[in-house]
Design a protein around this nucleic acid. Sequence first.
DNA 1: CTACCGTATATGTACATACAAGTTGAGCAA
DNA 2: TTGCTCAACTTGTATGTACATATACGGTAG
Lengths: 367, 367
Amino acid sequence: MKEKQMPKYLQLKQEILSWLHTGRLKPNDQMPSENEIAEQFQMSRQTVRQTFGELEQEGWLYRMQGKGTFVSTPQTQKSRDVQTIGILTTYISDYIFPHIVRGAESALRERGYRLLLSSTDNDKGKEKESLDMMMSQPLSGLIIEPTKSAEGNPNLSYYLSLDYLHIPYLMINERYPEMNCPSLVVDDEEGGFKAAQHLIELGHRRIAGFFKTDDLQGINRLKGFIRAHHHYQIPLLPELVIHYLTEEKRQKPYESAITMLGQADERPTAFVCYNDEIAIHLLEAVRTTSLQVPQDISLVGFDDSSLATATEVKLTTLSHPKTEMGADAAKILIDMIQNKRANGSEMGKVYKPELIVRESTIQVSLS
Amino acid sequence: MKEKQMPKYLQLKQEILSWLHTGRLKPNDQMPSENEIAEQFQMSRQTVRQTFGELEQEGWLYRMQGKGTFVSTPQTQKSRDVQTIGILTTYISDYIFPHIVRGAESALRERGYRLLLSSTDNDKGKEKESLDMMMSQPLSGLIIEPTKSAEGNPNLSYYLSLDYLHIPYLMINERYPEMNCPSLVVDDEEGGFKAAQHLIELGHRRIAGFFKTDDLQGINRLKGFIRAHHHYQIPLLPELVIHYLTEEKRQKPYESAITMLGQADERPTAFVCYNDEIAIHLLEAVRTTSLQVPQDISLVGFDDSSLATATEVKLTTLSHPKTEMGADAAKILIDMIQNKRANGSEMGKVYKPELIVRESTIQVSLS
DNA sequence: CTACCGTATATGTACATACAAGTTGAGCAA
DNA sequence: TTGCTCAACTTGTATGTACATATACGGTAG
């Protein structure tokens, strides 16, 4: 009797599970009563109860006092094959993130994955919290848009624990060389270059730049902006380069622009803006003076957001993959999950931004 | 002895859980043996086993045959109490939904819940799919923004299964009287009324309305628009009321507006638009003629989105709670979960939209 | 027909006992 | 000291009983 190795209550469990799997018992069927089973299998009712107790815990059965024991409905039992993927983003509602999330969501849904969403509000503490909550239940993969990237990677050690748990992850909008994961980024340096190049080719020589410098995105755009000046051998005037922090975005660029526009003799003829939001903001600033866009000031934004075409003067801007990036992230992550390639920084992608010329930039009058 | 209502094995469970929470027992501490507990609490060893069994199932304890019973390490135990809540929305990236999601997400995260997000793209089939995937693992609650509401509730039977599973849910932006759940809605009829009222009080008499009529939101706004005309005894000209479907939103309102503006003698003096997006669109339409906003045409939008202030002429519009609504939905849902009130349509909320007067509406010249 | 009351039967709680099986450490023998 | 046995613990399995409590159903009084 080799089967004796398995305790009776487990043998009974196997037997009942086979009834369920073979369809001998269907959802909502009533089980034989505890006493019936006990008699049939020549065991005591308490042992049957032990078996039923485990099967109830695992969701196969449910019991109703006075009525009997029943088989659970399928959705409660076979919950196994849907996997979950998390997205950790900085600001859910701002700007272009909804488009990224949308791209990822639809790609995931098509492939039968669920999406967990959490935002960090660019707060390291919240980032840790969010990671904790996400990993509280089985997670198949994670898409991360990191927090405050220009200051390094605060939760690095935390992300490394993902490696330990063999949870594949990738990063969007940012790349950390020290982390061995794919990253999907826009070549912001190229974007900054193209923005400045476009204006220079239109004859502009005094170009102001407004860049948020507490994330790598802003710093890279600024780098490209500077490189274009060097490349075309245009002197870059320090007083025309404004950098600001996230907290200052409502005031500093606006006020700096007003100040610049007040100096009639050394006034810039074009603005390159960190993104469309700031561009719209500076468009306002220009309007408060007697100057006009694009006649007096040409304006270039970034990201090709919905704001860019909402204005009367449609913004010239640089494209951002948005939805495509989200969808790509989802696809690559699923590929990593299915092929068990938990690392693979070679799977990343770099998107080249395209210049979209609209109405906010014109040839400068050669006087 | 009122406490006698609770079975002994549950009383013991509470007691032991309190030991864990107060730190009297720390992770990896050894528990007293089953016999010791049995003697201390004057109960049989079997009863203690029943308690220990549940606590082990729930991850608080682990047992080693021959050695004893021990307290689990934190990561193993508290993985239990993170619950998941789903949001089912029509379009993730459009317009105001990101703000709703953001409000809900931050309220949920504060309270230790995770957020599952899924969008339906206003497709009944996808709605069913999304529901399936969401419920494939334990779900504590669901926030639903229903699909195509003006045509009835296609997946009604599906939602009723939520009742059966005792999953609390609520609806936002829409109310179905036949469903016994709370709903958070904006009083769109009131909004439509206020928009028209504002223009009427500014002296406008020929007011055109553009309404999307394949959801209740649009129909209610239209209702309010009509009611205002009746209330002020202004004749409502049928040719000035345009209704369109979601698929037509890019062409029909725009073209209708152009046509209207072409008729010099019977030209309307104001537009009420279904939302800010259409308002911006019609602002474009006006610009293509030689007319101006607000001098020739006053314009009222809906929802107070970011688009409303992106334009040169800031839009007069009606407020929408957005973030607040998302946060409220999350709070109410958590309340329902914690108080086991699976039904409770009385917990809903109706938001009164406020008129936000900006630059796109002016007093009509009394000629 | 309705309201009420048993009865039968189901699960829920509680206790007692017995033995199996794994762990530990004391104590003894080589 | 080393290696062994064995007693004394632990948890695991199994069975027995008893009573509480919820449900369904049939019969009876009104």
